[in-house]
């Protein structure tokens, strides 16, 4: 199995993500944003960072990169598993592969902190991550408030696209714990073979870094890709 990690100009969590994957003993490949050849990889991660400096709107400029056209084609034709992290999430909503958009944090500040997340829905792409399960992961973003137009939030839940929510340490949903003003405390969204989250699993790969729950999340994703035959149809 080989996983590609895309580097856009301004990506800055690409190295961390490659190293996190390597620590899980999976083959990795760094993909430059101008390369449109995805033949060698079984899954793609769009890592965090500030592609194009987050200028204009975060993710908007990277969404126009050649590699994104290739990713879209592979998702539509072959259900390529794609995981977006932070800026990768922003790029995926800007390119229309995920619903909604990520607006500037409600309080207007960048926020770096530890956050507890709850799994809303199980997914065949993350076998073993059960609904209600809690994960402790860091966030670090200035534009992470998930937003969909009025009246469409219910659809996101009904279609099973709501994936992860910010909760308090005991797993309860409340407004105080919401770090950025996300609708329904949403921290992660999925649609088909594409999933994305604002928190950084690649920063939670060892207890000495504060948590190894990122290892659980990424391992589940890799396991899902390993079982690809079961859903790729």
């Amino acid at each position: 199995m080989r996983i590609g990690v895309v580097t856009f100009p301004g990506s800055n969590c690409d190295t961390d993500t490659l190293e996190a994957l390597e620590s899980l003993d999976v083959g990795v490949e760094s993909i430059w944003y101008q390369d449109a050849d995805l033949a060698q990889v079984d899954g793609v991660i769009l890592p965090g960072g500030f592609s194009y400096g987050d200028y204009l709107r975060s993710g908007a400029l990277a969404a126009k990169a050649p590699v994104m056209a290739a990713i879209r084609a592979q998702v539509e034709e072959g259900a390529l598993p794609v995981l977006g992290i932070c800026n990768g999430f922003q790029i995926l909503t800007e390119s229309g592969l995920l619903p909604g958009t990520l607006r500037p944090n409600r309080h207007g500040e960048f926020r770096c902190d530890w956050q507890t997340l709850r799994v809303v829905e199980a997914s065949p792409f993350f076998p073993g991550l059960m609904p209600g399960e809690l994960l402790r992961l860091p966030i670090a973003h200035g534009e992470g408030a998930f937003y969909v137009p009025p009246g469409t939030l219910a659809t996101v839940f009904q279609q099973g696209e709501a994936w992860l929510q910010y909760v308090d340490e005991s797993g309860l949903l409340n407004a105080v714990i919401n770090p950025n003003g996300s609708m329904a405390n949403l921290a992660g969204i999925k649609r088909g073979s594409v999933a994305a989250l604002m928190p950084h699993p690649e920063r939670a790969m060892a207890d000495y870094l504060g948590s190894s729950d990122g290892r659980r999340l990424l391992s589940a994703w890799l396991k899902g890709i390993g079982q690809e035959g079961s859903y790729a149809g």
Partner: peptide, 10 residues
């Protein structure tokens, strides 16, 4: 204007 330059580049 770094943002303008990056946007124009794209």
């Amino acid at each position: 204007d770094p943002a303008g330059e990056a946007t124009q580049g794209v």
